[in-house]
Simulated assay, not measured.
Amino acid sequence: MYRNHLAFRRAAQPFRINFDDVACGASFHQCTYILCAKEPALLAANAAAREAFGKAEPGSPYMPHLSLLYSDVDDEGRQQSAAAAVARLWGEGSGYDTLLPDGGFPAGSFSVWLTPVEDRSLQSWQRVAEFQLAG
């Protein structure tokens, strides 16, 4: 399963994940979320992890994000949720002057999770492994 994980751990360096914007999706698991900036270090770590874990499908989409809400609310509810998140995280009318500590976080490790999409309670979700990044 983790055929090249040791090579990945040696190659991957800690990096910073910066937040970009709050967005809404159309599915339960992508209801409201913060998009993460697609910066070179994050994209390189994603590519290395996909290769190491045998998930390197060419051209498969990658949307780095931090989920804020899993729900089946309608479009209006999603928009309200996103507006509330912007107001709470960046300050209403602030022009995105951040109220978040540093507007992101340093990534020094990552976890692999088993997340059956049919389980909307999330109770069956399990962390399979956690890896510290080199550096």
Rank of each mutant, 00 (worst) to 15 (best):
M1D: 07
R3N: 10
N4P: 01
N4S: 13
N4Q: 15
H5S: 09
H5P: 00
L6Q: 14
F8V: 08
R9G: 04
R10E: 15
A12R: 12
Q13F: 09
Q13T: 15
Q13M: 14
P14I: 11
R16S: 14
R16N: 14
I17L: 15
F19G: 10
F19D: 11
D20S: 15
D20Y: 12
D20A: 15
D21W: 14
G25L: 08
S27M: 07
F28Q: 07
F28P: 07
Q30C: 11
C31G: 09
T32V: 15
Y33Q: 07
I34W: 12
L35C: 10
A37L: 08
A37E: 14
E39H: 06
P40H: 06
L42I: 01
A45H: 03
A48K: 03
A48T: 09
A49H: 02
R50Y: 02
E51P: 00
A52I: 00
A52M: 01
A52Q: 01
F53Y: 13
F53P: 00
G54K: 06
A56L: 01
E57Y: 07
G59S: 03
G59A: 09
S60L: 09
S60I: 09
Y62S: 05
M63I: 12
H65Y: 06
L69K: 14
L69P: 04
Y70A: 11
V73E: 10
V73H: 02
V73D: 06
D74T: 08
D75F: 08
E76T: 14
G77T: 14
G77Y: 09
R78L: 06
R78P: 03
R78A: 11
Q80V: 11
S81K: 06
S81I: 11
A84S: 15
A84H: 12
A84Y: 12
A85I: 05
A85D: 08
V86T: 12
A87F: 10
A87I: 05
R88T: 13
R88G: 15
L89M: 15
L89C: 10
G91E: 03
G93R: 06
G93I: 04
S94T: 02
S94W: 03
G95R: 06
Y96N: 02
D97I: 09
D97W: 10
T98N: 04
T98A: 11
L99H: 14
L100W: 07
P101M: 07
P101W: 10
G103M: 08
G104H: 08
G104V: 03
F105H: 10
P106I: 02
P106W: 06
A107Q: 03
A107Y: 06
S109W: 14
S109Y: 13
F110M: 08
F110T: 00
F110V: 00
S111P: 04
V112D: 04
W113P: 01
L114A: 12
T115V: 10
P116Y: 06
V117E: 13
V117I: 12
D119Y: 09
R120I: 11
S121H: 05
L122Y: 09
S124K: 13
R127E: 13
V128R: 11
A129Q: 06
A129N: 09
A129L: 09
A129T: 03
E130I: 04
Q132S: 11
L133P: 00
A134E: 11
A134G: 03
A134D: 13
G135H: 02
G135Q: 07
G135K: 04
